[in-house]
Nucleic acid binder design. Sequence first.
DNA 1: CGTTATCTTGACCGTCGTCAAACAGGGTGG
DNA 2: CCACCCTGTTTGACGACGGTCAAGATAACG
Lengths: 252, 252
Amino acid sequence: MPQDPHCLSLLARRLAAHGPLSNEDHAAIFALPCDVRTLDAARYIVREGEPPSICAVLISGFAYRQKLTSDGVRQIVSLLIPGEPLDFQSLFLSVADHSIQALTEAEIGFIPRPQMHALLVARPAVARAVLINSLVEASIGREWLLNVGRRDARARLAHFLCEFAVRMDAQGLGNSGGYEVPMTQEQLGDVLGLTAVHVNRTLRALEGDGLLKRDGRRIIFTRWADLRAEADFSARYLHLDQTAPAGAAQPG
Amino acid sequence: MPQDPHCLSLLARRLAAHGPLSNEDHAAIFALPCDVRTLDAARYIVREGEPPSICAVLISGFAYRQKLTSDGVRQIVSLLIPGEPLDFQSLFLSVADHSIQALTEAEIGFIPRPQMHALLVARPAVARAVLINSLVEASIGREWLLNVGRRDARARLAHFLCEFAVRMDAQGLGNSGGYEVPMTQEQLGDVLGLTAVHVNRTLRALEGDGLLKRDGRRIIFTRWADLRAEADFSARYLHLDQTAPAGAAQPG
DNA sequence: CGTTATCTTGACCGTCGTCAAACAGGGTGG
DNA sequence: CCACCCTGTTTGACGACGGTCAAGATAACG
């Protein structure tokens, strides 16, 4: 199987942010085989209920984790941005409890499970970083639960926009001119537990109040501090001190 | 520091369910120091924002993880039942992103962080079990997000009741006569993203439709299959094959 | 230039929240 | 033993946030 230095360096950088890795750790990561494929938007990467098969890193584009109720209503439970590991939990569990789908066209590096597993056994520091990565994801999940359970549509949407911006910044994907939110209003609704119609109204309300400007799907933060206040946003739950070398810069 | 065989055997049993542990692994667990204390209901075990200090196992009673919005509205993001590890994530993260509070009077075994940390370094199989435990918790969190985001109050409440029953069974705390749900309707609301008033109405509606009977806080499942169907409940996300030696028995 | 997905808007409705009051139960102290 | 809490449950009236349905406007795309 081929290797892909870019994919592996993304992975190494992400893991190194969660804890110091030795030269040997780095070398072991860079020895991984890695098959890069480009998937169209909406393609499934993992399907709920299936036995785990893959172990992947998102190189470019976006993906999400989703669950469905029996009557087909969707909830997006996690948004994955470039550089993030995709399905390392499959190394340890025997069925997928959720699906993973490409949100946009996405480049994904596939690493065979046996090699990844061997790496984690041989290199405890790497295993530790993978564990921390999953703890941070779980923390984000808890904040989403608070968001969906206890904040109204306006704060909920604002909160998501803040989180997206801060996470992108922390991954070094910041963009001072604003952010292209890579999803339709329907998908935003699926993240927030709202309908597309209400997302639309809420977005326009925020825009109408001057808290942001929009240009297509690009969001420009005109009054970041105010938006953040409306969102009741604090970056603590992102554990950025254990995710990025330095704290994330504020967008805007 | 004293030891407590009961606390350590609970921990060992829980971890062994996530993957095979050798005799050495068991011996290492049983060598841990463990200080058991009884906490009153509502006592804080961990406070959001504080540096992590403890590492604990819930021996008896119940606890929950919670987060607050800035205006003081609470969301319970996780319910912890006897036998479950309480705050192992504190071993790896530098701030607590949520609070942990005793729900009822609870016996808790406190293990010093250094010793726990040493155990995980020395015994990879134990570290693996701890990781799997956190993955299962994250899976439950995702299901809760689906529940709160996409199911109406009736299904949401029914779903929680099913989950509680199945988890209790899986921990060997099953009770054929029904389950004492150890929380007020207000706390149930905080789990479900509802108000106490609406929880009350929904509970009575379920009772009125004959899907369950109540005796104080005891819930008797009169029509388990129907309740489960209303709840859209499937136990897959609990990963019981990696939690308990055998599949959980159905209550009722 | 037609076709489709996405966004936008309006009218209407229902679930759930809010407020308030009554009721039950358990503990405490007189 | 009874009065008096205090917490938790129950119930009703009312209102609002967000859902539903439907249509039209834009934009993306072949």
